[in-house]
Write a protein that binds this DNA or RNA. Structure first.
Length: 175
DNA sequence: AAGGGGATTGCCT
DNA sequence: GGCAATCCCCTTA
């Protein structure tokens, strides 16, 4: 994914994501029907759903389903590709290490994404997606989602098994 | 009209 | 490992 916010390009390869469905998924924001905040999820696929969490961090999602059905994918971690210096600046970090984009709140900070980007078309700037850096299917693993307390039986978290840029897992054990 | 709480992070001990 | 930071949405009255 690519950002041209502030006129400078920052980009990264998506290495971790989680699916949230509108139906039969109690952990999704869309589980109880549309609200002003979540309405975009019932729209056309390919638009951004961005929400503020804990008053501080923005979480970036891609709307994925056909119009009239809710669903989105939360981007949880990126492998930084371009604009490392600006990412460092935005993240207030002295080094360009794995901590730039290895979390949903971190990557939005690094790419300059905020709630003003909710509802934007992700096929064109300032925030857009490309298939320039694909990943082979056999490198992708799945698990239950991070930070959700319900629907833990759903294996809706997908990540690159051998990537150093996946977000740190709190509980010991399964990646 | 009011209050609880969250798909998180970073700093503290 | 514990917990504060800091919005604003959504539920309840």
């Amino acid at each position: 994914m690519v950002s041209t916010v502030d006129g400078v390009t920052t980009s990264g390869r998506i290495v971790e994501a989680e699916a949230y469905l509108g139906e039969n998924d109690s952990a999704a924001h869309s589980a109880r029907g549309p609200t002003p905040r979540t309405a975009i999820q019932w729209g056309h696929a390919g638009y951004g759903y961005v929400y503020l969490i804990y008053g501080i961090y923005s979480c970036f999602n891609i709307v994925t389903e056909v119009e009239g059905r809710a669903g989105c994918v939360l981007i949880r971690a990126l492998e930084p590709l371009t604009g490392l210096n600006l990412m460092q600046l935005r993240r207030s970090r002295s080094e360009a290490d794995v901590d730039l984009c290895n979390g949903p709140g971190k990557l939005t900070q690094a790419l300059g994404i905020n709630t003003s980007h909710c509802g934007t078309d992700l096929t064109k700037p300032p925030i857009f997606l490309t298939d320039a850096h694909p990943v082979e299917d056999h490198r992708i693993k799945k698990s239950s989602r991070i930070g959700v307390r319900t629907a833990t039986n759903l294996l809706y978290r997908f990540f690159i098994r051998d990537s150093h840029y996946v977000s740190p897992v709190k509980v010991s054990g399964h990646q």
